[in-house]
Simulated scan of single mutants.
Amino acid sequence: MDEQELRWIEENVSLAIEQLGPLSDVDFGLNRESVEWVEGFIERQRSRPDFDPERIDGLVGVLGSFLGASVAAATGGRWHRHDDEWGVLLPEGSTAFPFVKVRKQFRDGAESGESIESFYRIAVDFIATGKMREARENTGPGAT
C-alpha cells in the first residue's frame, strides 16, 4: 500500500507542476517561489463565490504532495508515514505534515495564520537546519 500511495504522491507533484506552472509568473518547480505562488492560488480559490471547503480533497492531495515534495527537495527529507498520516521526515528527525497544512489554509486562510509559505520557511530554514532546536536549548530551563 505504501508504494502505491508514494506513486500517487509523485503523480500529484507532476500534476501540480504541469497544471500550475503555466499559470504562474515564476520558474515553477519544487522551490520557495513556487510555494509562495501556490499560497496565493489557495487564497484565490478560497475567495471564489463557488468555493466549498467540503469539496477540496483533490486539491489538498495535489497541493499537499507538491508542498511536501518542495520541503523534501530543500531539506534532503523524505516521505514517511507517521501513524496514519503522510509527512516529510526531516534530516533532524522531525516530521512535517504538508497535507494537514494545506487543508488548514483552505479552511482558515492565511489571514488566520495558516500559511503554507510560513510552513515551508519554518521547516526548511529553522527545523531542518537545527536552528529551532538551538533556540529551544538557548531559551529553555537552565539556559544562561
Rank of each mutant, 00 (worst) to 15 (best):
G109L: 02
I9F: 10
V88E: 05
A123C: 14
H80D: 09
D125V: 02
F106R: 02
V88P: 06
I116T: 07
A74C: 04
A69F: 02
A72R: 02
R44V: 06
E36W: 01
G68N: 07
T144F: 10
D57W: 09
Q4M: 12
G87P: 09
T75H: 05
R46L: 11
L15I: 04
W79D: 10
F99M: 12
G68M: 04
V71K: 03
S65R: 04
V38P: 07
L30M: 11
A73L: 01
L59M: 13
K131F: 13
D125P: 01
E137Q: 15
R103E: 14
R103V: 00
E134W: 10
L23D: 06
D27S: 13
G21M: 07
L63H: 05
K101E: 15
Y120F: 15
V13E: 08
G113D: 04
S94E: 15
G77T: 08
F97W: 12
V26R: 05
F41L: 12
A143H: 11
M132H: 12
V88M: 10
L59K: 07
F119L: 09
E92W: 00
R44P: 00
V38D: 09
Q105W: 02
S118Q: 14
F119M: 07
E111F: 00
V38E: 04
E111I: 02
E18N: 12
A73N: 09
V13M: 07
W79Q: 09
P98G: 13
T139Y: 10
H82T: 13
K101S: 14
F97T: 08
I56G: 05
R44I: 02
N12P: 00
L59P: 00
G109M: 01
H80S: 12
P91N: 13
P53C: 09
E92T: 15
D52A: 14
S115R: 08
A110Y: 01
V60K: 10
K104G: 03
G87Y: 02
F28V: 04
P141Q: 11
L20C: 03
G64T: 06
K131I: 02
S65H: 03
S112M: 11
G93Q: 12
P22A: 10
V13S: 05
P22V: 08
E33Q: 14
G87D: 09
D27H: 09
E85S: 14
Q105E: 15
F126K: 13
W79S: 09
T75L: 07
S34F: 04
W86Y: 15
P22Q: 08
F97N: 08
P141I: 11
E134H: 06
D52N: 15
K131L: 14
E85R: 13
E54N: 15
V26W: 01
R7T: 10
G64W: 01
E114V: 00
